[in-house]
């Protein structure tokens, strides 16, 4: 069960025009017909108290189990239509043109400027909610609200949950983007031999700069070179001993 992290508007940084996906998502939810302030507040509290569990996001659907006051648990479902291929086409084209938009998405922000990216978010009428709780009259109920807040928190941690919700996984998106950038040859390794013979040589540098005094005096290894897990069968002490032996030998070689 994840507790919702608090996100304040100050966290938006310098991009005053950009909005976090989580905030935009919550706005959509707040505009649902029938959503009342009271239920929203209770839902947020539920989410912060960690009452939302088993949150699963898939194309078109979010499901969660919300633990209510009385000890009962209600399954909540959120349904959003998946975007069709034509819209995805436009979205991907927009993302390819300006890498800042992709960068914003990586950062959990709604890319500014381009209108297409707004299509990622559902319109007001597109979000349908369902909950088995007895609160028939005040829908969306607090449990639905809680689930929505938890989804918002998820978007902060993993922004690509939103495209997934709309029909494309992260891997598929990135591959598609790469393909759209055009066939590209991976840059070959190494350097051109002709260039190698034409590059001017720099003079040989002096001795290695000293960065830490501690490294020059005993103990030779201030900390163990690695921290092997128990399952490996090797102890940190063994590694340290080996490293220290190497260090001693190296120093002896340099002195002679």
């Amino acid at each position: 069960m994840n507790a919702v992290k608090q996100r304040d508007s100050e966290n938006r940084g310098d991009h005053a025009y950009a909005r976090r996906l989580s905030s935009a998502w919550l706005d959509v939810f707040a505009e649902l017909p029938g959503s009342a302030a009271g239920q929203l507040i209770r839902g947020r509290a539920y989410a912060r108290e960690g009452r939302v569990g088993e949150l699963h996001v898939g194309p078109g659907i979010v499901s969660a189990l919300v633990r209510a006051d009385e000890g009962r648990t209600y399954p909540v479902t959120l349904l959003i239509p998946v975007l069709d291929d034509a819209i995805w086409d436009r979205l991907l084209t927009a993302l390819v043109e300006r890498v800042a938009d992709l960068a914003a998405l990586f950062d959990g922000e709604l890319p500014a400027g381009s209108g297409e990216m707004r299509e990622l978010l559902p319109g007001t009428g597109e979000l349908r909610t369902a909950c088995t709780c007895p609160d028939r009259d005040s829908q969306p109920c607090r449990h639905v609200a809680a689930a929505c807040y938890q989804v918002a928190a998820l978007f902060d941690d993993d922004p690509f949950a939103l495209p997934l919700l709309r029909g494309r996984s992260k891997a598929r998106m990135l591959t598609a983007l790469r393909e759209r950038r055009g066939p590209s040859l991976p840059a070959p390794p190494g350097a051109l031999a002709s260039v190698a013979y034409r590059t001017a040589l720099s003079p040989l540098p002096g001795p290695l700069p000293v960065t830490d005094i501690a490294g020059l005096v005993a103990p030779l290894c201030a900390e163990a070179p690695a921290d092997p897990p128990a399952a490996s069968g090797i102890s940190a002490a063994e590694l340290t001993a080996l490293a220290e032996g190497a260090a001693r030998l190296a120093r002896k070689m340099l002195e002679s």
Binding site: D212, L220, C221, P228, A243, E244, A246, A247
Partner: peptide, 20 residues
């Protein structure tokens, strides 16, 4: 140059800069 590189490498090892 390789000699200088070797010295630098040994210098680093002498300071314990190695990892499995």
């Amino acid at each position: 140059v390789w000699s200088a590189a070797a010295r630098a490498g040994l210098d680093l090892i002498g300071r314990g800069r190695l990892r499995p």
